[in-house]
Design a protein around this nucleic acid. Sequence first.
DNA 1: ATTTTTATGTTGCAACTCACACAGACCGGT
DNA 2: ACCGGTCTGTGTGAGTTGCAACATAAAAAT
Lengths: 255, 255
Amino acid sequence: MKRKAERQSRILAELEGAPSLRVAELARRMEVSTETIRRDLDEMTARRLLDRTYGGAIRPTGEEPTLSVRHALFIEERQRIAEAAVAQLSGARVIMIGSGATATHVARRIAAEMRDLTVVTHAVGVAQALTINPSIRVILAPGDYHAGEGATVGARTSAFLAGFRADVAVLGASGLGPDGPSDALIDVSSVYEAICAQAAQVMLVADHSKFGQIFPARYAPWSGIDRLVTDRAPEGALAGWLSDARVALNLAPRG
Amino acid sequence: MKRKAERQSRILAELEGAPSLRVAELARRMEVSTETIRRDLDEMTARRLLDRTYGGAIRPTGEEPTLSVRHALFIEERQRIAEAAVAQLSGARVIMIGSGATATHVARRIAAEMRDLTVVTHAVGVAQALTINPSIRVILAPGDYHAGEGATVGARTSAFLAGFRADVAVLGASGLGPDGPSDALIDVSSVYEAICAQAAQVMLVADHSKFGQIFPARYAPWSGIDRLVTDRAPEGALAGWLSDARVALNLAPRG
DNA sequence: ATTTTTATGTTGCAACTCACACAGACCGGT
DNA sequence: ACCGGTCTGTGTGAGTTGCAACATAAAAAT
């Protein structure tokens, strides 16, 4: 039983030297069966000690740096939401994107799939995610830099955004309440409000953990939201609010 | 053909979002055969754009030489320059800071030593460095986001900056030539020019590797520079240019 | 217009991976 | 010594991957 711990720590050591390992090679080197290695790898993956690939493993990926643990759990959902959101964006030439983790995921996806468009944003993370695609023009809004959000906020931000028109706005939210989406930060929600006013269509992206949550600053009524992309079908009251306001719905269910 | 380049840059983009990719999934998403993806991956591996795994690819292990080398080089000198620069800033209430590695070092030092001031910048790195000090208000300028520089550039940037007045401007440079400091990027130097116009005093920070270097875009004449903070006494021609324009000099010699 | 080069798809095959089930080995507690 | 849980090896079948050779198709060059 000591062998297992030793083997796994040796796998970790191997990972320091090489970025990726193969199951077969590890099995040969440690003189155990591939099945054993595979079990080790799966177990270590669960413990976040490494990431699995087909046929091997790689170093763990340092993911979302600035966000709470609770939010970190929804990465999978956000990836899917982002994918579904981008599917609805074809044809858009000018897009505004808000701050927030889900919106940033959408930006990454946009960078991967779309081309030849202009994105206006107040979030630095969004801007950075998009620059890997040289065919996308990124315009960053000014304002007071808010470290926690990694975005600019304030009157200057809103005023600047008022100078643009977008085909679509992509916004996240801290909660989806009775009156509409709301954010935990009042400054941020003011910016979202300004974005809503300039977009022909407003797309809300949020995972199901936001359903029914209420936060201090509601930034738009449901009637101001054109589409919600999420990972689970809303139920009960929320479903009612959405249908009353004729909010289109896109689901990105578990693959 | 163009499709190949596009596909490969998209693979790079995908890699930004996920740490590892599978050949089969890429082939499906891009609607090409797995063989084509495999060939792309092998080619990109040879170019060090990514690392291959069995069945897929992961991010390259070796860090980018451009960014890390640029930052690692002369870091010692820059620390000292930053320290000397901040010593000259007491009393300033509004400071503008440009992009570039040396200017960012100054920002870090400011965050550590000063308080109760407003900083206007077009560089994201500068903004982030300053946020550790809550008594400093950080205003980020808008514009086209330039990934390599991590800053905004363009007409909107300059126009926005024209709305402020600063006691001091802190600017870096790619080179210190006969006519004045110049930058490798024309867009960036336009922003610097705008900053110079709004500051009561312009402070240039640059290590000795910039002495005598000439780059495409000169952004100010020497007469427009009030002070140079560097790590070595300029000699020969450069010393002449500086004294002709009565540029004050501060040295941060090796400790 | 013809040839050469480059990019991509197709096919067949060998080697590989994976998940699962089962069995034996090992270890600690009673 | 017995028992139960954990760890590991083996075997099998289904599904994947990598490779090489060949066939097109689309640029590029002549």
